[in-house]
């Protein structure tokens, strides 16, 4: 099967100029936890997740603060960055897959790169969907 036949055809994405507050609102309302970041033409320029935002507010949080007891600190730090553009926190190097690739190539890429989802692009590099692990599992049944 080709990736375009099994992917989730959803174009939900963020723009580099979006603020952290707007992104949190997007995650909260949509139930998504990461989205590709695209330019005006729909080309992918990054990817951003909830984790990137937390790490943006509290660098090193995941490594040293497992026993955090004061949420006020995180809240204060989040407020400090809420109006920042997300381009400062996104991951600019994005692993993508072309829509005409086959499912085996996609599965191999996801395993090797240890990612839960892959933005899918057309031959012009424009975002056309997302391939999630569950899309592959459903395809295999």
């Amino acid at each position: 099967m080709k990736v375009k036949e099994i992917m989730t055809k959803d174009l939900t994405a963020a723009e580099p100029t979006m603020t952290v507050r707007e992104l949190i609102e997007l995650f909260y309302r949509s139930g998504l936890s990461s989205v590709p970041v695209v330019n005006e033409e729909g080309r992918i320029v990054g990817i951003i997740s909830e984790r990137d935002i937390i790490e943006g507010a509290l660098p090193g949080y995941f490594e040293v603060l497992y026993g955090i007891t004061d949420m006020n600190h995180l809240s204060q730090k989040l407020r400090e960055i809420e109006n920042d553009r997300i381009e400062f926190y996104m991951t600019p190097e994005v692993i993508t897959i072309e829509e005409d690739e086959d499912d085996l190539t996609a599965a191999d890429l996801m395993i090797r790169k240890n990612v839960k989802s892959l933005p899918v692009v057309n031959k012009d590099g424009i975002l056309v969907g997302m391939l999630r692990r569950i899309d592959l599992l459903k395809d295999l049944l």
């Binding site: 055809k9 959803d10 174009l11 939900t12 997007l26 309302r29 949509s30 056309v128 969907g129």
Partner: peptide
């Protein structure tokens, strides 16, 4: 989505 349509909704 189940119809194979590409979605691009804004959540409010």
């Amino acid at each position: 989505r189940d119809e194979g349509i590409t979605t691009n909704f804004i959540w409010v």
